[in-house]
Design a protein around this nucleic acid. Sequence first.
DNA 1: AACAGCAATGGTAACGTTATCAGCCAGAGT
DNA 2: ACTCTGGCTGATAACGTTACCATTGCTGTT
Lengths: 350, 350
Amino acid sequence: MTGSVPNAPRIPTVRDVAALAGVSPMTVSRTMSGGQNVSAEVRTRVHAAADQLGYRPNQNARNTRLRQPTGLIGVAVTNLGNPYYGQFALGIEDEAARHNRHILIGNSREDPLREAELLDGFTGRQVEGLIVVPAGNGLGFADRLGSLPRVPLVLATRSIEGLEKDTVLVDDVGGAHAGTASLIGEGHRRIAFLGDVDGIPTARRRFQGFTEALAAAGIPFDRALLAPVRDTAAASVAVQQLLGQPDPPTAFFSVNNRTTVGALRALSGHRSTTGGRASALASFDDVELADLLGIPLTVMSHDPRALGAQAASLLFDRLAEDRLPEHGPARPRLVQMPVTVRRYPSPPKG
Amino acid sequence: MTGSVPNAPRIPTVRDVAALAGVSPMTVSRTMSGGQNVSAEVRTRVHAAADQLGYRPNQNARNTRLRQPTGLIGVAVTNLGNPYYGQFALGIEDEAARHNRHILIGNSREDPLREAELLDGFTGRQVEGLIVVPAGNGLGFADRLGSLPRVPLVLATRSIEGLEKDTVLVDDVGGAHAGTASLIGEGHRRIAFLGDVDGIPTARRRFQGFTEALAAAGIPFDRALLAPVRDTAAASVAVQQLLGQPDPPTAFFSVNNRTTVGALRALSGHRSTTGGRASALASFDDVELADLLGIPLTVMSHDPRALGAQAASLLFDRLAEDRLPEHGPARPRLVQMPVTVRRYPSPPKG
DNA sequence: AACAGCAATGGTAACGTTATCAGCCAGAGT
DNA sequence: ACTCTGGCTGATAACGTTACCATTGCTGTT
């Protein structure tokens, strides 16, 4: 890791361009950054030399000299392969592009160690700010954060208890409540919950909304209907098992798009083998094509791209404020993104 | 954009740590990078001071001084919101993490101007290499490339005619040929093609495989069955129109996951309203849940994550080679990722 | 006792960039 | 002829870092 590259072709610098154009490095610098106070003749000569050598100003050296921010934003997500976080990253990228910033992205794989590595790397590269989806349950995050530098940090999707930072969440509790209420309104009483409630905080919040809706309707929750699954395959197996029980649930609440896909596979298979009345499914997160399967489906839908854009927006607000701290730092902000409940097939009008 | 930040809290440097620990900056530097030849007593004092100030070595300054590479890889994709490119990015990230690199990611939105901006920004930030999915049809890319620096470049998913660079492609022609042959084997003769053949090169290559398979079976292609669609909504409309024709196609070839989703919506709706025999669909790219819809489906499947990993792998090979150019630069490599054809429901055994 | 060898530490300079200041020269105003 | 202005150019130093060399003081050998 240490030591310079022996045979790498040298990248041209201001000095190389200056020598070729027959001027001083200073004149090259001036020409490259606007060309104020440079004669037209010299300007063209410098540009020609720069083009010939393929010269690009070294932004890193530039930032060092100017004590300027780097224009970099660090983003750490838990699973880049999940389409959800693709949309999320897209929202951030849009907003970052608008503010003329680039994004450094990293995948923590829900691993706090990898997350710490990432944040270390980001800060070492002098990012101006961080947007983080905390890995796992976020335990210990605040401790690790203690050693982070003072760049602005926005938490997305998951909050950290006791950590006062700008945060963007989905209205998990309200959305889950509304979705569950919709199932109850259709007459369901035995509703299973698919999701690992002890894992990530998001699942816990959705479970909270779920139980609140049950309680509001006076329905006790049978703990036997709680399936602590975390991925597609496990969700599929759990649904099959639950349907095989003596007193099976008539509906399922699925905690995210991964478990929903698993549940849909199981329900689809079950319907075709038994021919019985299809069990209903309520899904937190949209899943493409799910509405075509003929399974009674309630979707608690939200927009990950908007969430990403919102997170970036909070971050840039904070950066702007740091530049003009007239009133001292503002208190951390918490934004909840709205959740919409939809029903497939659409309920009859009236 | 120019000018330093007035009120930003100063970020601690080696000098600050040195002053606090009562040693020279040099000793701090040594301590932070391994601690060779530093007494245990001083080492602990320096670490304490660094922790107290929240000091992080400035990687940018470090790289400048060491003439070391930055550990950054630039990645430009055309649509970060497409789950396909999420998986692709994941593959790159995996491989980059293995090589201890970070990735700068940008979304070109199929816009060559934005793409050029991105690549400029990346190279200005001294990335060690670039992985690019060329925007649009790639026309003019080589010209823009002329002004790029000499860092290694890997093209992914789409190649640029006349540009000799490391490239990773999907076996579009072979895959499309095999998928089409599968439809023909099931007895289909009138097969529509959903995809904009004049747009991105990938679509053109898949169309080539499609027509080759038809030709091999002695089936002429009716140009009326070519629907130049680029997104989900347009694909859906096109399928409806084609099915409404006097002599409708019995099968559809869909050029990518976006058009497949549109086609599935249309076919699903058509089947439920007419009750007739369902038209078959061959889809280039996997689509989650598509196999559950009860529509005869042939999938030409490939692994975007593996593709990303392969692209990154080529890049790191090239970087390693640049370090030890014993035999001069190797010729550009072209890797074709394999395509697997699957049938849903599975064909009977035997 | 003299000296080599080595560990620990610091001074200096350089990476590529640009802010700052100083110098030069042409043309305008007196 | 003289300053004065303002456009153009370059020398110097500094951003935060570390390679390189010099210096100090210690141990172990002869």
